[in-house]
């Protein structure tokens, strides 16, 4: 994680964009691939850093539960789906770019460009 001293990251996790909000996250993977493992690790690290006690993660292996793929419109793997808070958000990839994950989950404002 190359997350370091910028505004949100430096503060305790509770001061993220949505304090007291519970993040219900679901991570879809397909088998124990390197990408899957990386995504799980990256997500856990990120949540521990920014969403302490505010999150729950459910990892779904589509190899075991293929019928679940259609429900959440899974196309790419890994896909992180934020069910709560609404609206529904999808982030695809191994979540190695944590800046994008934070923006994608609305934990951090999209940087003006």
């Amino acid at each position: 994680m190359n997350q370091s001293l910028d505004n949100d990251g430096a503060k305790p996790a509770g001061t993220a964009a949505h304090p007291r909000t519970h993040y219900n996250l679901r991570l879809y993977v397909a088998g124990q691939t390197a990408k899957s493992m990386a995504a799980i690790a990256n997500l856990k690290a990120l949540c521990e850093q920014h969403l302490v006690d505010q999150y729950s993660i459910e990892v779904i292996d589509l190899r075991e539960n293929p019928q679940l793929a259609a429900g959440d419109q899974i196309l790419a793997v890994p896909t992180l789906v934020r069910h709560l808070p609404p609206p529904l958000k999808r982030i695809i990839g191994d979540l190695s770019d944590s800046e994008k994950v934070l923006v994608g989950l609305d934990i951090r404002e999209r940087a003006p460009s």
Binding site: Q67, I92, G93
Partner: peptide
């Protein structure tokens, strides 16, 4: 869809296969 890092379309394969 936000993209962060490497991914593949295995989800599509899984759905099609299913």
């Amino acid at each position: 869809i936000e993209e962060s890092g490497d991914y593949d379309l295995e989800g599509l394969f899984v759905r099609l296969d299913y």
